[in-house]
């Protein structure tokens, strides 16, 4: 049943996934001394050669990252074009995250009076929607909502979360996070309509994502003027730590306190044991990717697509880290940012 509808897409995704850079590739890349070497190595892996061919020396980190991004976008788009419901809806949900980023970009641009081309340049191609350029033209929130966003899937998040008063400049970041929260909750709701196995797997993944979201907001809001009550409103209404863990997170004031909260949860025990504050973030990402890895081990469910997109993101950020490290001659810190989960089981 699943195979008849989504078999091809799944096979495609797995095919793409098997061509992800492996741990060995990263090790090889880590030995490169210049970006030209990186380029040569990536070209030798057949998938990248198409994208890297046009890169002229001197190679800049952005070039390589852009190539990787183009490749991901292409993979994703191919997948999306093949998809039929419910996979197509599922994939659309995956784009909403990028859409939120794009919308925020446009909002910021609007507040600064930028031109729409300039903004579209910066937008992620996965999360483009038709009315995005017109965000810039709209003057205030009501108009924005009425004219621009009402047709987009984001409308239902926005209506609940934002009032006109919120659109002063401080709140752009807040809106982003509120939207993200709403998005996660909606995604969760959508997943419960899918088949049982997908639902189960997605619940795990989204729970983790919700926890990450909450923890990151907590850690990043230290030392800012974000009040605790506002912080609470940014937490999702589900997650492994929901509800009492979130309540406790809301009162945290230092990273150590956050760790104390995390220690009580078996899943996060290891993460909390790390010393550095930033290791928490890294630990969470590793956790996420590991569970994605587990998801990919199973077949016949849609969660694999989610996992796939997460691995894409990870590859992008790994490549970015790697190229920047090489460009800035900071290879000693290479291990700090790279997260290699061996994709080939």
């Amino acid at each position: 049943m699943f195979n008849r509808k989504h078999g091809f897409s799944e096979a495609f995704v797995r095919g793409c996934h098997s061509k992800r850079l492996s741990k060995r590739d990263y090790e090889e890349l880590g030995r490169c001394d210049s970006l030209e070497d990186v380029k040569t190595y990536l070209e030798s892996i057949s998938d990248y050669s198409d994208y890297l061919r046009n890169v002229q020396p001197p190679v800049k980190p952005e070039d390589i990252v852009a190539c990787c991004k183009r490749r991901h976008v292409k993979e994703f788009n191919t997948c999306q074009h093949q998809a039929s419901p419910p996979l197509s809806t599922f994939l659309e949900y995956l784009t909403y995250g990028h859409m939120i980023d794009n919308l925020m970009l446009a909002l910021n641009g609007m507040l600064h009076g930028r031109s729409s081309e300039e903004i579209l340049d910066k937008c992620s191609p996965i999360g483009l929607f038709d009315s995005l350029p017109s965000v810039v033209i709209s003057g205030n929130v009501q108009e924005l909502y009425r004219l621009v966003l009402v047709d987009t899937p984001l409308a239902k998040y926005l209506s609940g979360a934002v009032s006109a008063a919120d659109l002063d400049e401080l709140n752009v970041e807040l809106i982003r996070n509120v939207l993200y929260k709403e998005y996660l909750q909606d995604f969760m709701k959508f997943c419960s309509t899918l088949d049982l196995r997908t639902n189960e797997l997605m619940k795990n993944l989204l729970d983790l994502e919700a926890d990450r979201h909450a923890i990151r907001i907590t850690v990043n809001s230290f030392g800012t003027e974000l009040s605790k009550s506002v912080r609470t409103t940014l937490y999702t209404n589900f997650g492994t730590m929901h509800p009492d863990g979130f309540v406790r997170l809301a009162t945290c004031e230092t990273v150590d306190e956050v760790k104390q909260v995390l220690v009580t949860y078996p899943g996060f025990h290891e993460v909390a044991a790390k010393d550095d504050a930033h290791d928490v973030d890294r630990g969470l990402r590793i956790l996420e990717l590991e569970s994605c890895q587990r998801v990919l081990a199973e077949q016949f469910n849609l969660a694999a697509f989610y996992a796939f997109s997460k691995f894409q993101e990870n590859e992008l950020s790994n490549l970015m880290w790697l190229t920047e490290c090489i460009a800035q001659r900071q290879k000693s810190s290479l291990g700090e940012g790279l997260i290699c989960i061996d994709t080939h089981l």
Partner: peptide, 17 residues
């Protein structure tokens, strides 16, 4: 830097600071 304060609230804010 009111708006900067919250930049990267969801991701990487501490690093930005």
């Amino acid at each position: 830097q009111r708006r900067m304060e919250l930049a990267g609230l969801g991701r990487g804010g501490a690093r930005v600071r």
